[in-house]
Amino acid sequence: MMEKCTKPCFHQRTLSASSSQTAQFTCYIAAAVIAILGVPPVLVGAVAASTDWNRTLYGSPPPYVRGEQSLVLPLTLQYLTPSYISVIGIGAVAAAVMSSTDSALLSAASVFSSNIYKNILRQQASDYEMQWVIRVTVAVVGVVGTSITFFTNSTLVLWILGADVSYTLIFPHLVSVLFSKVTNGYGALMGYIIGLTVRISLGERAVGLPVVLCLPGCILVDGVFIQKSPVRTISMLCTIIAIQVFSLLALAMFNHGLLPEKWDIFKVKNTITVSPTDAVTQNENDGARSDEENLTDYYCTAQMRTLW
């Protein structure tokens, strides 16, 4: 939960840093602070594990026997602390959860409305129309997010699921855009489709997804297939390979006339994506050449005036 609460704020701080050195220093400090902030949850879990719950109003058996280990924090606050501490603690947890929720809703709405709806679907959309798009997106994301919580009672499972999606789908696209010049919209789209299909086919016990595609080492236990291979890393590699293969395929087909140019909705014909690093270097070189040209023109003009 702490990770979900701090992630948007952390990215905001690093992206708004005055220099790359400041952003790096912020990351180093954050790594140390996160390690320190991880001590209280460990202590709460140790206290709950060593507590004789039969001597409390909760009674026996203990939470981990009842399958309520994900509720250790609220149970500890309710049965092992005074009432005012319990109210303050649960209120702090609720505030953190609401902070994460609104940041996630707003970030999802802004990404869809600005990056997808405005730039791809409807570029001439007015500000009033964008306001309604944001409102509808917030409502849809809220309903979908609430529906996902019906499948599990553990927030840790949802956090792991979010990290899984980030690693298998978002991370490959980020790497491809930064380090591959041939990456384009067609490869990115197929990467999402293939990566998501592979990840779902490999199954996920946490959310009840059955195993459809068995990898080497997959075993059958009590009628359920259990994967022993690194399914997340394999899905991530499949996504990267799909992005590169279909990006190259799209470039070849449009540039060699195998597909009509009117089908090129992402405008990749005769273009190669430039990574951000190359773009910065190119802008600096262009700026240097412009300065040299201006300086040369100045001296030439001065010499002409002198001769005149």
Score class of each variant (00 low, 15 high):
T197V: 11
I194Y: 05
T239F: 03
Y28L: 03
Y128M: 10
S201D: 14
K181Q: 08
Q124R: 13
S18D: 12
A252C: 03
G208L: 04
T239A: 10
T155Q: 12
V211P: 02
S176R: 04
V33R: 06
V274F: 08
L258C: 00
S18I: 13
Q282W: 00
T22S: 10
L77F: 05
M190S: 10
C5T: 05
N184S: 02
V111Y: 12
Q123K: 13
S235E: 11
Y58L: 06
K269I: 06
A125S: 15
W308Q: 14
G142F: 01
K267L: 14
R232M: 09
K118M: 00
P82D: 06
V224P: 06
Y117G: 11
N54I: 03
Q244Y: 03
T271H: 00
S229A: 15
A95V: 04
I34E: 10
M1R: 05
L71Q: 09
G38A: 01
L209K: 03
S103K: 08
R13N: 04
F150A: 12
A302L: 08
Q78F: 09
L295Q: 02
L105R: 03
S20C: 15
V221D: 13
E68F: 08
T197G: 15
H256M: 02
F266A: 07
T51C: 04
V65D: 14
L307C: 08
D291N: 04
V93N: 07
S201R: 04
T273V: 00
K262I: 11
P260L: 09
V207S: 09
V39L: 03
F25G: 05
I160H: 11
V136I: 15
Q124Y: 15
V157G: 06
L258I: 07
A49C: 01
Y128E: 14
S180R: 12
V111L: 11
C9M: 10
M2W: 07
